[in-house]
Amino acid sequence: MAKSYWKRAFPVYLMILPGLLFFIVFKYIPMVGISIAFMAYSPFDGIGGSEWVGLRHFHRLFAEGDFLTLLRNTLMLNLFDVLFFFPAPLLVALLLNEIKAKRFKAAVQTILYAPNFISWVVIVGITILLFATGSGGINQLLAGWGFERLELMTDPSYFRWVWLLQNVWQGAGWGAIIFLAALAAVDPLLYEAAAIDGANRWRMLWHIALPALRSVIVVLLVLRMGHVMDLGFEHIFLLQNSMNQGVSEVFETFVYKVGMTQGDYSYSTAVGLFKSIVGLIMVLFVNRLAKQTGQEGVF
């Protein structure tokens, strides 16, 4: 038995090996660098020669006057993202899946995924062009019709929605690709059988398409939880201004201002490590939840 196992397993291990080597060399060896978080790191002394300072950087982080604000802002944006952005690509995929005209589908899909290649500088620039309080096209229209101007870019209460909608605009079509691939694996015979049974399109979507996507959804959701403290730096940084700072300051922008521009690697590594640990806890939690509800989970 053992011999036949190895005969069967050997090629499989061989297949895994190159990837594994990659992870060891380029991901695990550099993890020694995490120790920078516990040092007063100087590039000239190196990781071996810098002074150990224990948890000093973590004390500093938790003692920051804004720590709770940063945490709240980061978690709120992520909550918005998971609740509203995460389902958007799924919805797009299900809609596209219902379109049978091939050419039309190809055209529409290309259009929907194209925004993924427009950079945030441009997206934020266009939004300001349209919604700037004074000169924005939309606001001039509103004012012309006698409505109140919409302070979309500066009123802090709009910030999260603007950020979210821009994310959806940029990413929904692109994110749909992965769900479409999963849908493509559905056996067409299932649809035919359902049609013969008299099921309408809505029922087929509910009973065939969605279940086929279940495992992908769970995997993506669990992986998403690992980044519950991460938000794209560039996007938020571009949207940030003096007025919305109270809701837009998150760990990334904060670390950029206090650490990166001065080359304070120890502090930014400490903040990164803190974020990773929160991510790990969330992943373990959600993974268990998934398993308890009868899904396979990620590991």
Binding site: F23, K27, Y28, I29, P30, M31, V32, G33, I34, I36, P43, I47, L223, G226, Y265, T269, G272, L273, S276, G279, L280, V283
Partner: peptide
């Protein structure tokens, strides 16, 4: 490796 990374220097 999705969660933890050693950073750019190492």
């Amino acid at each position: 490796t999705l969660l933890f990374s050693g950073g750019i220097i190492p």
